[in-house]
């Protein structure tokens, strides 16, 4: 790929004391691309996202987000990204609009634009007419979409979603992914980590992370093909088959080394 990439990750290493959470990960993400992060718990997905958001310092290697080095200028990075985590993180004791106005203000959305953006986010979440409802009283799916709306109030070119759909019903998950694709269509690069295999199919490309390393990288079809090569037995391996085979291969390889 080329200099137009929105995210460039180059041999990234992160150590916590003796533990190596990320061990030389490299990839790039293009504008408008939806990149999925797949991997077992503790594989390093969240660590990677936190580094790209400027919340953690990389131990080695380089990471660029929207053209800015995350280690050198994390604050500038944060004006250009949206972030939504697995932990639901709006204020329960504030209303829908109060939450949006607060985050809009923190992101520096100007007074002349904030009203329109808030209205847009409200309708995107399907909450028109419930602007003054306290967030505590919203069901999970609505909260999720509202959090997404809050994360893009400042129209960032890059959006990070850390297991955004855990604990949400299938219908809400589907609607959520429709939204993600709409954003991708608008040119926003989306980096999303997930546990759900069916969700991986919705991504343009998938990065399979295991033990802090990139075990496989490619389109969903590529991943399934790689999975078959890695020993998945089914003739037409599902994403799950491929995942199990590739993670098994990566872990086996490490044990042998």
């Amino acid at each position: 790929m080329n200099g137009a990439a929105r995210i460039v990750v180059d041999r990234l290493v992160k150590r916590f004391g003796d533990f190596t959470a990320l061990d030389g990960v490299s990839f790039e993400v293009a504008p408008g691309e939806i990149m999925g992060f797949l991997g077992p718990n503790g594989a390093g997905k969240s660590t990677l996202i936190r580094i790209l958001c400027g919340l953690l310092h990389p131990s080695q290697g380089r990471a660029q987000v929207a053209g800015i080095d995350v280690a050198k200028d994390p604050e500038a990075v944060r004006t250009r990204i949206g972030y939504m985590s697995q932990k639901f993180s709006l204020y329960n004791d504030l209303s829908v609009v109060e939450n949006l106005r607060f985050f809009g203000g923190i992101y520096g959305v100007g007074r002349e634009r904030i009203d329109a953006r808030v209205t847009e986010a409200v309708s995107m979440a399907g909450l028109s007419g419930r602007e003054d409802t306290l967030v505590a009283n919203l069901a999970g799916g609505w909260k999720q979409r509202l959090a997404l709306g809050a994360a893009i109030l400042h129209r960032p070119p890059v959006l990070f979603l850390d297991e955004p759909t855990s604990g949400v019903d299938p219908e809400s998950r589907r609607r959520f992914w429709d939204l993600i694709h709409t954003l991708g269509g608008e040119g926003i690069s989306v980096l999303v980590s997930t546990h759900y295999m069916d969700e991986a199919e919705y991504c343009h490309r998938i990065a399979l992370i295991s033990g802090g390393r990139l075990a496989a990288l490619g389109t969903p079809r590529d991943i399934k093909r790689l999975g078959k090569e890695a020993g998945a037995e089914a003739a037409e391996p599902t994403m799950e088959d491929a995942f199990v085979a590739l993670v098994g291969q990566a872990q086996g390889g490490r044990a042998a080394a």
Binding site: L55, R78, S89, I106
Partner: peptide
């Protein structure tokens, strides 16, 4: 504890 701290820290706030 709730997670809003993390949400705020990924904003440009210092």
């Amino acid at each position: 504890e709730v997670g809003t701290l993390e949400q705020i820290l990924v904003t440009p706030i210092r």
